[in-house]
C-alpha cells in the first residue's frame, strides 16, 4: 500500500500517469491502425489468405480513372470550403463581437446547432430537399421563381453546390466559435490605440484583427484542409450511399469505403487511405511552413 502511495505521489511518475490514457488511446487507435494500414497497402487481402503484392496497389491507383475523379472532387470541395468557411465565419465572428448585433446568444446558438445535428438525419433531409422530383423543396422554390425544375443531384455543378450548402450549414457555426475565441484573446488596448490614431473600422479590421487572428486562422485552415479532403458522410448521405451519377459525389474517403468495405478489397482501400494521408500531410506541412507556424517554437 505504502509503495503504491509513494508511486502515486511521486512527482516523477504522476505526469506519466496522467498522460497515460491519451498515450494508450493514441497508440491503440491511431498509431496501430496507421502502421497496419501501411502494411496492408502492400498486400492483397483475400478471404482465403493474404498475399504480398509490393507496390501493385499503388501502380493500379495511377491508372484508376475513378480514383482520379475522387481526388479531383475532394480537391474542388476542399478549396471551395476554404473559400466559404474561413472568410464568412470570420466576418460573423467579428459581427458577434461588435456592438452591432442584438441577441448574440441566440444567433450564436442558431449558427452552432447544425453542428450538433446528426449528419445522417440532416443528410437525409437535404437529399429529400434536393430531390429531382417536382415536389422536392428546391424544385418547388425554383418553380415558384419560374426557373423550372432541376436534376440537382445528377449534375456536377448543382451536386457540388448541395454538398457545399450542407458543409456551410454545418460548419459555419463551429468555425465562427473558433474565431470568436480568437477575438476574445485580442487585447482591447490595441483597438483603443487604433482609435486614438484615427483608424477607420475597416483599417482596424485589416491591420489589427486579421493579423492578430492569424494563429486561429492557421488552425482553422489546417483542420479545414484535412476535413475537406476527408469528407465522406455528407456525400454518402446526400446520395444515399457511396455511388452517385457520373461519380459527381465521390470523394477519396468515399472511394476508400467503396473499395475497402463494400468490395472487400482492404489492401487496395488501404492504398487509397495512404495516398489521402500523404496528400493531406504534404498540403498542411507546406501551408504551415508558408504561414510560419512550423518552427515558431525556436524563435
Amino acid at each position: 500500500m505504502n509503495k503504491f502511495k509513494k508511486f502515486f505521489y511521486s512527482q516523477k511518475a504522476a505526469p506519466y500517469v496522467f498522460v497515460l490514457p491519451f498515450i494508450i488511446s493514441f497508440l491503440l487507435f491511431w498509431i496501430y491502425p496507421l502502421c497496419s494500414t501501411i502494411t496492408m497497402s502492400f498486400q492483397d487481402i483475400k478471404p482465403t489468405g493474404t498475399e504480398w503484392v509490393g507496390v501493385k496497389n499503388f501502380t493500379k491507383l495511377l491508372k484508376d480513372g475513378i480514383f482520379h475523379t475522387a481526388i479531383k472532387n475532394s480537391f474542388q470541395y476542399m478549396i471551395l470550403t476554404l473559400v466559404l468557411l474561413i472568410p464568412f465565419p470570420m466576418l460573423w465572428a467579428v459581427l458577434m463581437d461588435s456592438r452591432l448585433v442584438k441577441a448574440k446568444g441566440f444567433w450564436k446558438a442558431c449558427l452552432y446547432v447544425p453542428a450538433l445535428t446528426s449528419v445522417v438525419i440532416s443528410g437525409t433531409l437535404f437529399r429529400l430537399m434536393f430531390s429531382e422530383y417536382p415536389t422536392g423543396q428546391m424544385n418547388v422554390i425554383t418553380t415558384a421563381l419560374g426557373l423550372g425544375t432541376f436534376k440537382w443531384l445528377k449534375v456536377k455543378a448543382t451536386g457540388l453546390g448541395a454538398l457545399l450548402l450542407v458543409a456551410c450549414w454545418r460548419w459555419t457555426g463551429v468555425n465562427m466559435l473558433y474565431f470568436i475565441s480568437g477575438l476574445k484573446a485580442i487585447d482591447t488596448a490595441m483597438y483603443e490605440a487604433a482609435d486614438i490614431d484615427g483608424a477607420t473600422a475597416w483599417q482596424k479590421f485589416r491591420y489589427v484583427t486579421i493579423p492578430l487572428l492569424k494563429p486561429t486562422t492557421v488552425y482553422v485552415l489546417t483542420i479545414s484542409v484535412y476535413a475537406g479532403l476527408a469528407m465522406f458522410m455528407e456525400s454518402y448521405m446526400l446520395w444515399a450511399g457511396p455511388d452517385s451519377p457520373n461519380n459527381i459525389g465521390l470523394t477519396i474517403v468515399g472511394y476508400l469505403y467503396k473499395r475497402g468495405i463494400t468490395k472487400n478489397q482492404l489492401g487496395y482501400g488501404s492504398a487509397v487511405g495512404i495516398v489521402l494521408l500523404v496528400i493531406a500531410l504534404a498540403i498542411n506541412i507546406v501551408q504551415l511552413i508558408v504561414n510560419g507556424t512550423l518552427g515558431k517554437e525556436e524563435d
Binding site: 490514457p21 491519451f22 488511446s25 493514441f26 487507435f29 446528426s118 449528419v119 445522417v120 438525419i121 443528410g123 437525409t124 476535413a227 476527408a230 465522406f232 458522410m233 454518402y236 448521405m237 444515399a240 450511399g241 474517403v253 476508400l256 469505403y257 468495405i261
Partner: peptide
C-alpha cells in the same frame, strides 16, 4: 479522454451503422 478519442474517430471514419440506418 477515451470517449473523446473514439468520438473523433467515428466522425471522420466511414460509420457503417449510420450509413445503413439512413439508407
Amino acid at each position: 479522454t477515451l470517449v473523446g478519442c473514439g468520438g473523433t474517430d467515428a466522425g471522420s471514419a466511414p460509420a457503417a451503422d449510420d450509413g445503413a440506418a439512413a439508407e
